[in-house]
Each structure stands twice: as structure tokens, then as C-alpha cells.
Design a protein around this nucleic acid. Structure first.
Lengths: 109, 109
DNA sequence: TAAATCTATCGTAATATTACGATAGATAAA
DNA sequence: TTTATCTATCGTAATATTACGATAGATTTA
């Protein structure tokens, strides 16, 4: 198969999984870190930085855009990408909620 | 292709991506939530809870184990799983570091 | 207008992931 | 010992992901 059985899970679980998948790739992590470090935005120099083909970078950027985590603005001939603060904070929150929901009570096996 | 070019990225980026991938699936999120909610541990009732085949659940558990996020203890005929606190906290920290590294300075596009 | 530059998309090949039935192995119960 | 119960693994089919060359579209420069 290869199809995730989305119906078996609730919306929250599916949405969180989708967003996590968006950042669960070294290239996309590197892209996000680069955008963050540049403080402002970044365009096609990601291609030089990451050593991946231009088509590949573009594809990764698209996935981050689809996840709503970044936003692109056309600037002349190039495109400037930056973090979408709202979605960024929201995802951070959701992840944190999951992680902090585990209280270490020594009742485990 | 389909092979991630691991060599293009540093160890931190690759490790983080691997662990994120481990939790970037609704079934595995549901499994983690279930383990957390049960407070102690959980065995094969995940099969009843999630509506996935036993082989599928076992496979997901294996991936979480491989990521070091859970730990299983044999208890008679069944196996009891629980969160691996150390790895859990470590991942939470790494993720949080990434998210908080973004300071919203209004210099973006 | 023509050439140059940058990015997105298409098509495609290689590989990974997801799910499940079948089955094996291990322990408990009869 | 035999049977029942539970979990892991194997094999496999369906689908998704990753990467890249080629190319198209859009804008700027010459």
C-alpha cells in the first residue's frame, strides 16, 4: 500500500503529522536555518549553499510553503523567502504541547 | 532517485531530521499520545485502539524504538512500551532550539 | 527587441514508506 | 505437552518521496 490511513486518526494528529513531515528532512531543516540566520530573507543562494540542484531546492521550498511555514515574495527576477511567524509559532506550540504532556511518573515498566 | 543526500548536511541536521521523521506520522503520534495518556505503559491494545493491523502497529513501534523515543519491556506474553525520557527531552530541546532561534525582526520581504 | 538571469514546473528514475497477510517465536494456560 | 495468546519479522503490493535534467515563464538588462 503506502497510503497512510488518515481516517483512523483525528484532524489534530493528521495536521501535526503533515507539518512535522514538512520539517523532517535535512535539506528543509537547512533551508529553514538559512532563512533564520539571514534574519531577513533568502533567494536562490540556497542552491549554492546546499549543493542540491535548483529544481530540488525549489521543490523543497514548495513543500515548506504548502505547510505554511514560509512565504515567498517576488523581488525582481528572484524570490525572497521568509518565515511565516504565525504558523511557525503555532507549530512550535503544538509540538511543545505534545512533548510537555508527558509527565515522568516512575510507574513505567 | 529518492535518496536523501545525507552528505550535503551536517550531523545535527541529519539526526534531527531522522527523529522528526519518526514522529511525523499520525499513527506514531497516536501511539505516543496513547503511551503518554496511559501514564504507565501500553501493549497490544494499540491494535484495538488505532484500527491498524498488528503487523503495522509493530512496525511503527519499531521505528519509534529505533529513534530511541520509546522502550519496550517484555511482560509475560505481551510487551509494555513507555517513553524514553532522556531521548524525549533531548528531542524536545533540539526542536525548541530551532524554533526559538527565529527572532521576528521586521526586516523581511 | 534580444539576451541574460532566476525560479517553477514537468517528466522521470531510484528509493523509501506504509500497510497487511502469513508465519515464526516466545510465554502462559490448560 | 498441547493449545492459546501476543508480538516480531518476512514478503509484497501500493503509493510517496527525493533528486535532477529539461524546459517554460517572468523580469531585468543590454
Amino acid at each position: 500500500m503506502g497510503v497512510t490511513k488518515t481516517d483512523n486518526f483525528n484532524d489534530e494528529q493528521n495536521r501535526l503529522a503533515t507539518q512535522l513531515k514538512a520539517i523532517a528532512h535535512p535539506a528543509r531543516i537547512a533551508i529553514l536555518q538559512h532563512i533564520i540566520n539571514a534574519n531577513a530573507c533568502i533567494c536562490g543562494d540556497l542552491v549554492d549553499e546546499l549543493g542540491l540542484a535548483q529544481a530540488t531546492i525549489s521543490q523543497h521550498l514548495k513543500e515548506l510553503k504548502n505547510a505554511g511555514l514560509i512565504q515567498g515574495t517576488i523581488e525582481g527576477v528572484s524570490v525572497c523567502y521568509c518565515i511565516e511567524l504565525k504558523a511557525w509559532k503555532a507549530l512550535q506550540n503544538e509540538i511543545n504541547t505534545m512533548f510537555t504532556s508527558y509527565k515522568d511518573v516512575n510507574t513505567c515498566c
